[in-house]
């Protein structure tokens, strides 16, 4: 049930207090938070740096907008609604189709127009926004992950979380929703977390509810066959986010669209610690390695190349600290 602090230290596990104090507090400037807390700004910023996001259908700013959108016969049949300032996937709704004026959620649940209007009105009132401020609702295209990748997940789209430290992608995982997690990608609700080899995007370790698993509980696929397509472009997309935001400790959430490739979902200035459990490996050795680099790599490509060389799964059992710092 419990693990000794010494054992955690040996494995270089990063704790909440140290994360807040030495990484978020030290490397993330408060002034940059609005860039990532406001999805509309994130999206505009990303565009300037050539980072693609899901196509924006419309932005609902007022109760009137919401009403008009729900009632309009021209509204698209499939769309995703996101609160502009929500965090951690809260308030996100995926509408997969319509029947008789009702909306169908990804889970098959039916939403009447009034239901959807109420949900939108909650978003606009700031129910999901971090400080309770009035918010906007973003209406976006639904993502098509392609048959190969969708099969891994039960309902929901698998998303890739990459942890960026000073622009270096130091660790990555895929979150697969399960029946237990109710189609959500949150690990503490029972989604499967698959730790990825940072060099290849292949599975190296997987957990559900803090326990190692080898197969997806619902789809039955063997997880060690999982491999994220287009891995290198995806790492590059993520690495550019450092240029865009200047945040030194950043969580980048991406999805892979069959036609458009990697798309940026959201950025997180306070990324969680579960990525370590998914990888079965602590973050600290890698973070310390980056901190002690004598000369920084100035371009995203150099940084990606560096981590591929340093943190590749083969031959590295315990992070990158066993290798001498790259000169």
């Amino acid at each position: 049930m419990w693990i000794k602090p010494a054992a955690l230290r040996r494995q270089g596990m990063l704790g909440m207090n140290r994360r807040n104090l030495e990484f978020i507090g030290h490397y993330n400037s408060r002034a940059s938070y609005p860039l990532v807390d406001d999805k509309l700004r994130t999206r505009r910023l990303a565009e300037q740096y050539g980072i693609a996001s899901p196509r924006l259908i419309s932005v609902l700013r007022t109760q009137h907008d919401a009403r008009a959108f729900v009632r309009s016969p021209d509204s698209p049949a499939r769309f995703v609604i996101k609160p502009g300032r929500g965090a951690g996937g809260k308030g996100i709704m995926v509408i997969q189709g319509r029947s008789d004026g009702d909306f169908l959620k990804a889970s098959g649940e039916q939403l009447s127009r009034t239901d959807l209007e109420r949900d939108l009105s909650n978003i606009l009132a700031g129910l999901y926004s971090l400080s309770g401020q009035p918010d906007v609702a973003l209406v976006e295209d639904v993502i098509e992950p392609g048959p190969d990748f969708t099969a891994w997940s039960h309902e929901g789209v698998p998303d890739v979380r990459i942890l960026l430290f000073q622009g270096y992608p130091v660790m990555a995982m895929v979150r697969l929703s399960t029946h237990r997690s109710d189609g959500k990608a949150n690990l503490h609700k029972g989604a499967v977390g698959v730790g990825l080899d940072i060099a290849s995007g292949r599975c190296r370790h997987a957990v559900q509810f803090n326990h190692r698993v080898s197969h997806h509980p619902d789809t039955g696929h063997a997880l060690n066959n999982l491999s994220v397509p287009d891995w290198h472009p995806l790492l590059m997309q993520a690495a550019w986010c450092y240029e865009a935001t200047g945040l030194g400790y950043l969580g980048v959430d991406l999805v892979i669209d069959e036609h458009q490739g990697p798309l940026l979902l959201e950025l997180n200035a306070r990324p969680g610690l579960a990525i370590q459990i998914a990888n079965g490996q602590g973050l600290l050795p890698r973070l310390r390695h980056i901190e002690t680099l004598s000369g920084p790599h100035l371009t995203p490509r150099d940084r990606v190349d560096h981590v591929i060389e340093q943190f590749a799964a083969s031959g590295l059992s315990n992070g990158g600290n066993t290798h001498p710092p790259h000169a």
Binding site: M1, W2, I3, K4, P5, A7, L8, Q11, M13, G15, M16, N17, R18, L21, E22, V207, N210, H211, R212, Q276, I277, G280, G282, S317
Partner: peptide, 19 residues
Amino acid sequence: YTGYRLTELHRFRAMSEPD
């Protein structure tokens, strides 16, 4: 204080499983 929280010793218990 940058050490582990008591609850983290429970949360990270999976790390003690053999790799």
